[in-house]
């Protein structure tokens, strides 16, 4: 049973990783403190649902559409938020919390407050020994892993990705190399939101969508990002798996209602003991490179 739970946790963690890497990217590059990130996850969920209602396509196909939709929404949201870049952080927090409320209420108006799930298109699940894995979560996980690898490759191996990392470290120096910092900011934001939306679409294979779910995912994404070390994309990746496993274990052994309580307690403990984040200071780059080339 323990193994079954850990595997479910890893599958969940793979999807969480997408959300939190997106948040980490936005924070690292544009220095935007985004408290509406989880609501973009939920927008991703409803995008996937809408595609399902109209075309009957499941999340493991519709993700290809969810990415550009979320990117476009991110691009629009950035136009609202960009004026606060470089200013008081409190303004960013207010504007993104405001944005979060607007999104939740727009979703309430459009989709009502019902919990919505998607019918599984597979009648059986994968059986290995006495471990059961639903094909849908497995597919969602594989897509999440593929996109994560592609994203890390983009960040580490392409000129644009390198420019994003450069801007996150010193934007003035980067603009002296001819980098258009404003363009990098909007691209990083759009990309971060696209990953959040994609994660939302994939989460539909495991959880129900409801308009105010954004609150849960907001905090979840921030917990993971802080655990991983602020702005460190690879740290967020590792922390996501930890939180995923933590969630399935407490869900089973203590009770589903305590899932969040346990990882927030864990979070508070980490903030007291190791406020720089669990993985900051550890060189993740090398490891990840091996994984991607293997």
């Amino acid at each position: 049973m323990l193994l079954q739970l850990i595997i479910s946790g890893i599958l969940l963690g793979g999807v969480y990783a997408l959300t939190s890497m997106g948040l980490s990217l936005v924070f690292g590059v544009s220095k935007i403190i985004n408290f509406a990130h989880g609501d973009f996850v939920v927008i991703g969920m409803y995008s996937a649902l809408s595609i399902y209602y109209v075309t009957g396509l499941g999340p493991y196909i519709s993700w290809i559409l969810v990415i550009p939709i979320s990117f476009a929404i991110g691009w629009l949201a950035f136009q609202l938020i960009k004026k606060t870049i470089g200013g008081e952080e409190i303004n960013q927090i207010f504007i993104t919390i405001g944005l979060s409320m607007v999104i939740q209420n727009l979703l309430l108006m459009t989709f009502k407050s019902d919990y919505r799930t998607m019918k599984s298109s597979f009648s059986s699940s994968l059986e290995i020994g006495n471990i059961y894995i639903s094909y849908e979560s497995l597919l969602a996980f594989l897509i999440a892993v593929a996109v994560t690898i592609a994203f890390l490759w983009f960040l580490n191996r392409t000129d644009l990705g390198r420019a994003m990392r450069a801007v996150s470290q010193d934007k003035d120096a980067a603009s002296l190399m001819g980098v258009k910092v404003e363009l990098i900011n909007v691209l990083a934001f759009g990309l971060g939101i696209a990953m959040a939306g994609l994660a939302g679409g994939l989460l539909l294979t495991m959880y129900a969508a409801y308009p105010t779910a954004g609150g849960v995912y907001n905090l979840l994404a921030w917990v993971i990002v802080v655990l991983g070390g602020l702005g460190q994309v690879e740290g967020a990746l590792a922390a996501a798996f930890l939180i995923g496993i933590c969630e399935t274990l407490t869900g089973f052994y203590i009770g589903p209602d305590f899932r969040q309580v346990v990882y927030y307690l864990f979070f508070i403990a980490i903030l007291i003991i190791r406020p720089q984040g669990l993985f900051s200071g550890i060189r993740m780059h090398k490891k990840v490179k091996h994984e991607t080339t293997a």
Binding site: R162, R165, A166, Q169, D170, D172, A173, A174, L176
Partner: peptide
């Protein structure tokens, strides 16, 4: 002050 990208 050089302004290198320290983590690159």
């Amino acid at each position: 002050g050089r302004r290198l990208f320290p983590d690159l």
